[in-house]
Design a protein around this nucleic acid. Structure first.
Length: 469
RNA sequence: GGCCCCAUCGUCUAGAGGCCCAGGACACGGCCCUCUCAAGGCUGAAACACGGGUCCGAAUCCCGUUGGGGCCA
């Protein structure tokens, strides 16, 4: 028994949650849930100038939308770095007292010269250690790094990665102005929060040996490390705004389903044989950080949309109605009551990849078409079309049961009488009722629209056609 | 520039020495189905970066090259 798993996700509230961060959060969450451990949310808000409450709110909201619930973290106190300054100070004092850290007052100009000299020799810049033995009482606090040897990061994804100490220097723990550095805060937070597995992005791998040396200086055990690859843009550079939408919120607003987003993010760098679609429970059961790929993965919005479509298709109409309602209202339309909306959703769901598309495709259900597709109107709203529509209206008006099967019966019978193909009646009708040439099956549409509305729309189209006749 | 990571179809990936003249999925093309659009079915094109080893045998192991990415500046 090695004790319960404790993992964390530690965003900086300097912007919205982007997909890379979301995937890191997801991997941590999946790992915690799989091992029945704890998922901790910690806020790295020491960058006072760029951290905002709005950003924090947006990140929290995005995590909730994705369904990544945390066991510890805000709004409980003690999970924001700004609240933890005393803890960093105390750990810094301990390192100083133990002789594992020392003060340094080297002026920036000196450091700069050393750096340039190293650069000229084509070597890694490494602080000279000028202040190591000076026993200063103030300045920047540096960690004493062993001169020789190497530190090995035993990464769960990459395997052992060796860093020679000759490439590392006595890095700064606390700046002259008393503010702790990022790497120091992370180490102190992770040890005091008893984090057992650090799962984060590849970009932190070069920082890891410095951090490990700090854990050791502090006398704490080093947690397991796992560095997942970065999410890349189409040009294979680190994904950023210039590649398009990257904020989780943007995908929510586009109407991508949260389960699809989770599924997509999980599959980016991870696979389970040939399986593409996973329920949340399956992900929790099957995911293992050891199976995550070490190579970078390009973010492909097209595949994300495909997944969203797959989830959309599988959703019962009732559930979809609930999800789509806000999107219908956002489009400036009035949402019918759930009982009416659910069967409408069932006709729409295989025709839309997102909730936004769903509303676009089904717009005619919620309002009369404002106009007819011009090209189609020329083709179908002719004198002949008007005649057909008139005969259809007449028969539909006299129809007993108003359901799809009965309506289809009317159309079939009339095509037989007129000796025309079904398309000849269906397309003018579709145009009249939806304003376009593509829609869910016509008879279902008419059934859902109701007799009164159907007849009204047919009459209107007839008037337009008649005007030209 | 130094250090670190990475390398299978355009993209996500399966593949942990023979099951692979490399499988699945997205996207793309064709055909079928069909009241339109979708959905669905069938089908096509498409990859082991390169060069050396090791081994009876390498996409799989080792080394190098090239390319890409990241961190620090």
């Amino acid at each position: 028994m090695t004790g319960a798993v404790r993992v964390r996700f530690a965003p900086s509230p300097t912007g919205h949650l982007h997909v890379g961060g979301a995937r890191t959060a997801l991997f941590n969450w999946l790992y915690a849930r799989h091992h029945r451990g704890a998922f901790v949310l910690r806020i790295e808000d020491t960058d006072r100038s760029r951290s905002t409450e709005d950003n924090l709110g947006a990140i929290v909201e995005a995590l909730r939308w994705l369904g990544l619930d945390w066991d510890e973290g805000p709004p409980a106190p003690g999970y924001r770095q700004m609240e933890r300054l005393a803890i960093y100070r105390e750990h810094a004092a301990r390192l100083l007292a133990a002789g594992r850290a020392y003060y340094c007052d080297c002026p920036p100009e000196l450091l700069l010269r050393e750096r340039q000299a190293a650069q000229a020799r084509k070597e890694t810049f490494r602080y000279s250690g000028r202040c190591r033995a000076r026993a200063l009482a103030a300045g920047a606090l540096r960690l004493r790094i062993p001169e020789h040897g190497a530190t090995v990061v035993n990464d769960l994804i990459h395997g052992p990665v060796t860093f020679e100490h000759s490439q590392l220097d006595d890095w700064i723990l606390v700046r002259t102005d008393g503010t702790p550095t990022y790497n120091f805060c992370v180490v102190v937070d992770d040890v005091t929060m008893r984090i057992t597995h650090v799962i984060r992005g590849n970009d932190h791998l070069p920082n890891t040996p410095k951090q490990i040396l700090c854990y050791e200086a502090l006398g704490y055990p080093v947690p397991e490390m796992a560095h997942a690859s970065m999410i890349l843009g189409s040009d294979r550079s680190r994904l950023s705004k210039r590649h398009g939408a990257v904020a989780v919120q943007a995908f929510r607003d586009k109407g991508i389903l949260a389960d699809a987003m989770v599924n997509y993010l999980a599959r980016l760098g991870w696979a389970h044989g040939d399986q593409e679609i996973f329920s949340r429970a399956e992900l929790v059961e099957l995911f293992d950080i050891k199976d995550v790929a070490a190579s970078g993965a390009v973010f492909d919005e097209t595949k994300l949309e495909w997944l969203s479509h797959e989830f959309l298709k599988r959703l019962p109409g009732v559930e979809l109605a609930r999800l789509a309602e806000p999107f219908i209202r956002a489009a400036g339309l009035e949402a019918p009551p759930a009982a009416r909306l659910a069967p409408i959703m069932d006709t729409l769901k295989e025709r839309a990849k997102t909730l936004v598309e769903l509303v676009q495709v089904g717009r005619f259900y919620f309002e009369r078409p404002a106009a007819y597709e011009p090209k189609a109107a020329l083709t179908y709203l002719t004198a002949e079309g008007a005649t057909h529509l008139a005969r259809l209206a007449e028969r539909l008006g006299a129809l007993g049961d108003w359901d799809a099967a009965a309506i289809e019966g009317v159309y079939r019978a009339l095509t037989a009488e007129l000796g025309v193909k079904l398309v000849a009646l269906a397309q003018p009708s579709r145009l009249a009722v939806t304003g376009g040439t593509a829609s869910p099956p016509l008879f279902e549409v008419l059934a859902l629209l109701g007799r009164e509305e159907t007849l009204a729309r047919l009459a209107r189209a007839r008037a337009v056609a008649g005007g030209g006749a």
